[in-house]
Each structure stands twice: as structure tokens, then as C-alpha cells.
């Protein structure tokens, strides 16, 4: 329990700092900028209580917002991600895996499964985030293009980080 608390606190801090100090400086082709910090919500154990997931989404979003002056944008999206995660996980994994394995990892699930799992959440997160950030339907195609292309990069970063840091 304490072990988990330390581990996930560390993931939280590293994800937030990596995002705001390094990744927020990235802008490729004038439109692609990755949002890697979502990895924290993706890696939480299967049996995380729903209320805790939502609260952690809130804290995560608020931390990012405080650094980027986008108050509310990341918070709103992360709260939603925390809310829908259990439902989607129930759809894409079996009860047996959820009971035998503690948390979604590339090492315990297949690579394809993990990519699909990441892609689902990153897609939802990025589409909502970029629309909410733009806060207008003007130039919607540009906004969608930004969301999709940035999403591809984010999924790649999250999956690569799995190979680098969470390999057993």
C-alpha cells in the first residue's frame, strides 16, 4: 500500500514536470505538441476506487493548468478521463486479467493491447482538450488535425516510456 503510494506519487511528479518543463516546449510543424502526462491516469491499478480516479484526474489536470495558465481546460478533460476509465477498461479487458494483474502495463498485457488501450484514451483526451482549448468551432479542421497528429506522438511517447521504465 505504502509502496504503491510512493510509486504512483513519483509517477505523478515525473509526468507533470516532464510535461510542463520539457514537452510543452515542443512544437513540430507548427501544430504537433504531445501531452504525455495522461500516462499517470492510464497506469493506475485496476482496483482504484472510482471516486479516487476522478479526484486524481482533478488534481492532475489542475497541476498542469497551474503551470500553463490554461485554468480548467486540462482539469475538465482529466476529470472526464478518470470517470470513463473503469467503463472502458471493463469493455476491453476480461475480469480474469483484471483480477490476476494489478495494473495495466505493457509487460503484463500484450503490446497490441496496450497500444490500443493508450490510443483510446489519448484520442478522447486530445480531441476534447484541443477543442476546449480553442473554445470555438472556427477552424475546426485545424483543431482536429492538431489533436490527431499530437495524439499519435503522445501514444508513441507513452508506449516507448513503457519499454524504457516499466519493463520487468
Amino acid at each position: 500500500m505504502v509502496n504503491n503510494l510512493l510509486k504512483y506519487s513519483l509517477i505523478f511528479v515525473v509526468a507533470v514536470l516532464l510535461q510542463v518543463l520539457v514537452l510543452n516546449r515542443i512544437l513540430i510543424f507548427r501544430m504537433i505538441s504531445p501531452y504525455f502526462y495522461l500516462i499517470f491516469l492510464l497506469l493506475l491499478p485496476y482496483d482504484t476506487p472510482r471516486a479516487l480516479l476522478i479526484s486524481l484526474g482533478f488534481v492532475l489536470g489542475l497541476s498542469i493548468d497551474a503551470f500553463t495558465n490554461t485554468l480548467g481546460v486540462h482539469t475538465a478533460v482529466c476529470v472526464l478521463i478518470g470517470f470513463i476509465r473503469p467503463g472502458i477498461l471493463n469493455k476491453i479487458s476480461t475480469r480474469e486479467t483484471r483480477e490476476s494483474v494489478s495494473a495495466p502495463r505493457i509487460s503484463t498485457m500484450s503490446v497490441n493491447w496496450f497500444i490500443g488501450y493508450t490510443a483510446i484514451f489519448v484520442t478522447i483526451h486530445h480531441l476534447l482538450l484541443f477543442m476546449l482549448e480553442a473554445f470555438t468551432f472556427q477552424g475546426i479542421l485545424f483543431t482536429l488535425a492538431r489533436a490527431v497528429l499530437s495524439g499519435i506522438l503522445s501514444v508513441a511517447l507513452i508506449v516507448i516510456s513503457q519499454f524504457l521504465f516499466f519493463r520487468k
Binding site: 476506487p49 472510482r50 471516486a51 476522478i54 479526484s55 485554468l71 476529470v79 472526464l80 470517470f83 476546449l132
Partner: peptide, 21 residues
């Protein structure tokens, strides 16, 4: 309870977005 929590936090953060516009 989690649905109430979700609605509360979501409304709160969206109102931040709107006021921050």
C-alpha cells in the same frame, strides 16, 4: 457517489474554463 463527484468537479472545472476565457 462517484457520479455526483464527477458532475461536481466537471461543472467546477468547466466554469473555470468559461470564466478564464
Amino acid at each position: 457517489h462517484y457520479i455526483f463527484l464527477f458532475v461536481f468537479l466537471e461543472v467546477f472545472s468547466l466554469s473555470l474554463v468559461v470564466s478564464y476565457n
